[in-house]
Amino acid sequence: MKHRTLRGVAALTLGAALVLSGCASEGGGSGDETSSSPSATDGASDAATSSPEDVAALESITVTGDPGAEPSLEFEQPFEVSGAAAISLNDGEGEEIAKGQQITMHTAAFSGADGSKLGSTWETESPEQLIIDDSLFPQLLDVVVGKKVGTRFLFANPTTDQTTGEPVTYLTVAEVTEVKTIPSRAEGEAVTPAEGLPTVTLDDTGKPTIEIPEGYEAPAELVAQTLIKGDGPVVTEDQTVTAHYTGMLLDGTVFDSSWDRGAPTSFSLQQVIPGWTQGLAGQTVGSQVLLVIPSELGYGAQGSGSIPADSPLVFVVDILDAQ
């Protein structure tokens, strides 16, 4: 799914840079009309552990800065590694981090080519949320799982510069500020939907299947039908939401599904298509929502990847968390 990240290399300041390539559909989804999908580049096939040479290269970097403040990096340029690599900078002193939990973290990204800073969530005061699961580089799991809130890590990723097309290594330094366990599916009171809408059935895990009624025509206005009413706080349009979702065209083609990837995702409601912002704001955490989105509130005349131009979209979204 295309979501939440900024354009170009600035996206590497965010959690999307830490997610394995291939974890998101190239066809788009709820996402940001201006951003790239959260692929993490060419290191996805690397072994689960960082190579000794790459670890030594990371250990040669000087990281300075007080806990809670943005750190600075000093290193010889150009900085290069052979594959994705990560090292832990400290253990942290807060709650222990376990696989499957959601962390909140601050990140700053730097170019290995010239040392320039590409972006920082410390500067924007917008920490990111990330689910600690197998969608991440395994090298990251090695340095996060079992650590505690307050831990810092350093991650290096060889990739291709999105502007020049040249090989480059990006460096991301991160500090975990919070950890929490979130539900795996929507939970609450079932709501009887209006007649004539696409129907949704759930398997034992909560994964939805969507059936489009024969002859169904997309409405002219957004439909946001609550299917399960959660008892959490009301979602506002300025929040970052963690959700499981499935997206479908009216011909029944599923173009994106976090369920198929095996992990929910987090995204800002300020950086997704308008149908998501308008349809999820005002819902409650824990809810499941059916969205039928007119083309003009989706990807419009330009389409996106496997989504044709002027396509209405159907989504089922489980709202698991909002911050």
Rank of each mutant, 00 (worst) to 15 (best):
F155M: 08
E33H: 05
V173R: 14
A56V: 00
K147Q: 14
P78Q: 13
D46C: 12
A44F: 13
A156T: 12
V200W: 03
Y170K: 04
A24P: 10
S257C: 04
E96Q: 14
E53F: 06
V200A: 08
D204C: 02
Q270Y: 00
T277I: 01
E217M: 09
K207H: 05
E53A: 15
S82E: 15
T34I: 06
V176R: 14
T121R: 00
V200S: 08
A16Y: 02
L154F: 08
S51D: 13
A301M: 04
A84P: 15
G303V: 02
G232S: 07
T172I: 12
G92P: 15
P167M: 15
R7C: 07
A57T: 08
M105E: 06
S25F: 04
Q278M: 09
I228V: 14
L12V: 07
A44I: 13
S311A: 15
P138Y: 06
G247E: 10
I61V: 15
G31D: 11
S258L: 06
F315R: 05
L89Q: 12
G188P: 11
V289M: 01
V63E: 13
S304H: 11
Q271R: 12
E178P: 11
R4G: 15
L118P: 00
R261S: 10
K180G: 12
L140H: 07
E53T: 08
P158H: 06
D318C: 05
L118E: 09
T172E: 08
E93A: 10
Q239I: 03
A113T: 12
E76K: 09
E221F: 13
T160Y: 07
L280I: 12
E76P: 03
G8Q: 08
T124S: 14
G43T: 04
G119T: 01
V285T: 14
D134H: 12
R261L: 01
A190S: 13
I307Y: 10
F255Y: 15
A113M: 01
G252R: 11
D32S: 14
D260N: 11
A156F: 01
A11D: 13
V191N: 03
A220K: 05
L280S: 03
V317G: 08
A44D: 04
D318Q: 07
A24T: 00
